[in-house]
């Protein structure tokens, strides 16, 4: 599921609408924004519904910061963006087919 970000209130939108339901500002697709990795934590004690080990990334764009999940370790700042997959907000490489 593509993820949209409101350019006004910075809300996260999953409906695919190009207008924010809360403030009516325009939304943009997360994969059209340049995201920079500004933090990463590796978790070894995890909640139910998640693997027993994974990473949480903190990404930053010109609009907002966002946390996202991945089982992979990324180092290339510009090549990831967040997307909803199986109910999780996942970091996805832009090189993904």
């Amino acid at each position: 599921m593509p993820l949209y970000i409101c350019t006004g209130c910075r809300d996260i939108i999953t409906s695919g609408d190009n207008k924010c339901g809360r403030c009516s500002s325009e939304t943009v697709r997360a994969d059209s924004i340049s995201w920079k990795i500004i933090g990463r934590v590796e978790l070894f004690s995890t909640p139910e519904g998640f693997p027993e080990k994974y990473y949480v990334y903190l990404l930053e764009s010109g609009i907002r910061k966002i946390f996202c999940f991945s089982e992979a370790k990324f180092d290339d700042d510009a090549s990831v963006f967040p997307e909803f997959i199986d109910g999780k907000m996942v970091c996805v490489s832009s090189g993904r087919e």
Partner: peptide, 14 residues
Amino acid sequence: ERCSGLTLPSLAGF
């Protein structure tokens, strides 16, 4: 943020 796997311990790690 919960969907990103974030937990209180991970916030402390950040």
